[in-house]
């Protein structure tokens, strides 16, 4: 997120403290004086991991401390899992396969890389799905296993995927 605050001693602590208080983990801080905004205002970009559902509380705490939140970046979902599917992915309605995950509301297909060697030969696809907790990733994987069985794909999961 990008924040704007007064350039005076102790201000950085007033931003970091609330993040720490809600159990967050700061990944990076970019702290710079923007020559165009001039004098006593400072731009600050913070990337942090915070517990699920705690963003609103954090933002209201910043408001209470008169820290101006300019922009909250994409709220990233944290758990990712890659699998490889081998089979006729295109001819068995790839949109439907993706939609079976995306329509759950708790997981989504994040990335697809596909290799199609020749017409009528099975394609190989690496699919990354993401979600915000391990339990939901496992639920999504169970759906994919069902889809793979119904559509005749070979599904290759990662060893740690239990």
């Amino acid at each position: 997120m990008k924040l704007e605050m007064k350039d005076s001693p102790g201000q950085l602590v007033s931003v970091i403290q609330p993040i720490s208080d809600i159990g967050g983990n700061i990944l990076s801080v970019i702290h710079e004086r923007d020559p165009e905004t001039g004098g006593d205002l400072l731009d600050l970009q913070i990337m942090c991991e915070i517990p699920e559902g705690s963003l609103d509380a954090l933002l209201s705490e910043f408001r209470r401390r008169e820290i101006n939140v300019l922009r909250v970046g994409e709220e990233r979902l944290l758990v990712r899992r890659s699998i490889i599917l081998i089979g006729h992915l295109i001819h068995t309605n790839i949109s439907d396969t993706i939609d079976r995950i995306d329509s759950t509301g708790y997981a989504e297909v994040h990335e697809l890389s596909m290799v199609m060697p020749a017409i009528n030969e099975p394609s190989s696809t690496r699919m990354t799905i993401k979600s915000d907790c391990l339990k939901d990733i496992n639920r999504a994987l169970a759906i994919l296993r069902d889809v793979a069985r119904d559509k005749g794909f070979l599904i290759i999961e990662s060893l740690e995927g239990n």
Binding site: I84, V115, P117, P122, S124
Partner: peptide, 22 residues
């Protein structure tokens, strides 16, 4: 039981791109 007879070279190459294998 699932065997390896349907594993493709492309699938292994996709895994290898991420420093993984099958």
């Amino acid at each position: 039981i699932i065997g390896i007879d349907r594993v493709t070279t492309a699938a292994i190459a996709l895994a290898e791109r991420e420093d993984q294998t099958i």
